[in-house]
Structures are given as structure tokens and as C-alpha cells.
Design a protein around this nucleic acid. Structure first.
Lengths: 219, 219
DNA sequence: ATTAATTTTTAAGTATGCTTAAAAATTTTT
DNA sequence: AAAAATTTTTAAGCATACTTAAAAATTAAT
């Protein structure tokens, strides 16, 4: 399907699920930077294609098929963001800009290669969940505060749930970064301290930090 | 510029420089899988845009600007091939297919990131030269047979100039692969044997092999 | 509950990048 | 050098994805 169609269903999906606005043509139009007339036009065409249900003056509702297409594009977008962030150390703003273009020209084959390379991450660097190849969102990462490993166990950093500058500086200094591997071990049972190892560098963190560092199991 | 335009100037460039066929509309059309009429049509439009010179019934000739656009797209294509081949171990056929799509949706910014990551390679995995950011092709790789290093010196494998299956199997077994780092040292002066080290694994090769393994200096 | 403001829809029109069919020019064959 | 074959061009037409302008419906304000 075309770039215009993919972006259209993606915009509806995001409005339906995350963003504030409803999914009437006007909101989709302003999100995509096109005229209201163009959005109504497209809505009729996609209704005919079975991707959404269009009824005059009503909000647009994606069909199962339309939602599947949206999730497929979102999966590609978020995997590109993850890859570009990890490999090239690009900023959150930069990876978004590039992923917005690449997402439409990426085969399912290449998408799986990227996912595999990254260890099938469940979240992108923004902390948004990455749908799996079947378009399901299975959010199962945990904060390392909740990990009870007696021995060192390896995980992949999935998100850093903070807006605190000092926390991010600390993370940068210690290699705690989206996609990186860290070994986690509860320092003492009953303790609130957790020991983590990154690149053979071991540090001990207290709850303030362990509660906001999220990881995925390595599968 | 659009995907159609980029592919059009790329096809002309390749016909002008590498392929057998001339650049009359018919040849470009069949290369792109469009009708002759469409090619003539496009040729007139691109003449008006200053990307090529169109004269009735004559071969199409790219202007400086058109050639620059073609080389920019070709650079992106070959860098993607290099990256996908090295990172995901994709076949030459697969990387070509993906690069054909990605090349049109890759910013110059991301292109430089990829080039940098790969150590600014001069050749892609097919052995085709990668134009630099200014659109210049500066082919300066050398076969390791010509390297006279007394001490171990590091290089990046740029191409394997062979069609021999056993040679490729030998390379695969020893990690001699496009984009990989190898250390080269002339085993004895006046000898035809060359010592190479890949991943702390040292082997000695004779001229049969050293003449067809090409490398670039690490910059 | 009207009126006013906003949104949605319809209608007409445009640029891009194709198509097929037929006319015109070129190239090849004899 | 003519005839035949091929290629190129022109012409008309189509789908996609937009635009602006005006009409119709909905939503918000008094």
C-alpha cells in the first residue's frame, strides 16, 4: 500500500489509542498536514478497501485489517528508531525523523533481521512498545528493582523512565542505554540495593534508580 | 526529488557508465519497466528541470546536476548494501533488493552516519565503488599482495575479487568478509607469503589468495 | 432554541507518473 | 535505394493524492 495510505491508518491508530484528538477527518488532516477535503476523500477510498469504516460526519474507525496495517508500520518505525539510536547514537528527535521515512520502504524480511539483531526488543528508545511480527503489543519489561536474581542474569535495557537530566548523565557515563546488555544481581536478599554490571564494570544502585531502569529478558 | 526521477537519472547514469545499452528512451524504459512513451515524457520533464539534455530521437545525456543526483542515490544504495551485508549477513541479492527501496528515503545526514560507522568504505560488497559525499569516485583499494608492511597494519576488507566457491568458503570460515578488519604483515621480505590476522586468528596466505583480497586503509 | 462558528462534505481542478494506440521518424534488411 | 522492422513521439486517458471554494451539516454559544 502507498505511503499516503500507511500514514493515514497510522494517524488514525495513534489518535484512537494514544493521542487526545478524535479520529474525525479534520484531526487526521491536520496531523498529516493535508486539507480536510483530502482526508474525507481518502477516508472514502479506504472504506472501499476495507481498511476502515467511514460514515458521514462520524469518527473514522479502523477495521481489523486497517489496524494490522497500522501496527505493521508502527513496528517498523520503532525498530528503526531502536536500531539508529543504538548504532549511530542519534538523538530521539533525529531517529524519529529518519524512521518516519524508512518505515514505508522496509520489507518484512528486513524488519525481522533488525528485530533479531536487537534481541527482539519490546520497547523503542522513547519507551513506546514495539508490536511483534503478528501486530501484538506484549509489554513485559520490568524495572530492575523487581528482579530477584541471586546470580548475575543478563537483560537488555528497554527504557529509562525519567526526565531527570542528572539521571541521564549518570546513565550515559555508565553505559546504561537503550539496547545495551546489563547483568543484574540482587546484592543481598532483603536489601534495596541492586548490583549491575555493564561492560565488566560493576556498580550498585539504590531504589531511586532501579525503579526507573527497565529491562527485557534476553530470549 | 521523487523516486521516479531518482531512478530515471540513476538508470541513465548506469547505462552511460557501466552497462552496454545506450541511453535512448527505449533502453531506459525497459530497464525501469515502464513504457517508451512514459520514458520520453519523463525525459522532457527532466530536461525542463535541468537534469538532462533531451533532443528528439537522440540519446539522453545527464547534465552535471543530473549526474550529481545519480551519484548521490548510488552512494546511498551502496552504503546500504554494505551496512546490511555486514550487520545482518544478508546475501548479495537480498541487500540489493532492500537498498533499491531504502536509497530514496535516506537523508544525507543518515548517509554520513552509515559511512562513518563502516569506516568510509570505498567499495560495496559487490565490489562496486562508493562515491564520496561530493559524488566523486576515488577508487584506491589495494590487493593485500601489494602491501609491504613490516609490522601488523590494520585494514578493512573492501572486496573479494573471485567467483570461486572454494575461495568464498575459505573466506567465510576465516572471517574474511566485506567490512571486517584484518591486520596484514609481510611474513618475510622477498617472500610471496602474507600473514593476516582476523579476530586474533593468524593465518598465512600465498599469492593465489592475496591477489584477490582487496582492502582499504583505515582512516 | 436560534444564531453563530466550526467542521465536514461535495465539486471542480491540478501535478505526477503511468497506460495504450496511432503517427512519425529512424534504423535495419534486402 | 526501397521496403520492412523497429523505435520514438504524440495524443488521449487513467489513478493517486492532493488543492481551493462553496454548500451542507454539525457543534457551540448566547
Amino acid at each position: 500500500m502507498s505511503v499516503a495510505v500507511e500514514n493515514f491508518v497510522k494517524a488514525i491508530y495513534n489518535n484512537e489509542n494514544h493521542d487526545i484528538a478524535d479520529t474525525k477527518p479534520g484531526n487526521i488532516a491536520s496531523k498529516l498536514g493535508i486539507s480536510n477535503a483530502a482526508a474525507t476523500d481518502m477516508a472514502k477510498k479506504l472504506d472501499a478497501k476495507g481498511l476502515l469504516n467511514y460514515e458521514k460526519y462520524q469518527a473514522l474507525r479502523l477495521t481489523k485489517e486497517g489496524e494490522k496495517m497500522a501496527l505493521n508500520v508502527i513496528r517498523k518505525h520503532r525498530l528503526w528508531e531502536a536500531l539508529l539510536h543504538q548504532m549511530f547514537d542519534m538523538s530521539l528527535h533525529e531517529i524519529h525523523r529518519e524512521a518516519e521515512l524508512l518505515e514505508h520502504e522496509t520489507s518484512d524480511f528486513l524488519t525481522e533481521k533488525i528485530s533479531e539483531y536487537l534481541g527482539h526488543p519490546k520497547f523503542d528508545p522513547h519507551g513506546d512498545p514495539i508490536p511483534n511480527a503478528d501486530g501484538e503489543i506484549t509489554t513485559k519489561d520490568t524495572s530492575i528493582a523487581l528482579i530477584n536474581a541471586e546470580e548475575n542474569t543478563e537483560y537488555i535495557v528497554s527504557r529509562l523512565m525519567s526526565t531527570d537530566k542528572e539521571f541521564f548523565e549518570f546513565c550515559a557515563l555508565n553505559g546504561i542505554k537503550y539496547g545495551n546488555k546489563i547483568a543484574v544481581k540482587k546484592q543481598f536478599q532483603n536489601s534495596k540495593m541492586t548490583q549491575i554490571t555493564i561492560n565488566s564494570n560493576t556498580i550498585v544502585l539504590n531504589q531511586d534508580f532501579t525503579q526507573i531502569i527497565y529491562v527485557n529478558e534476553i530470549n
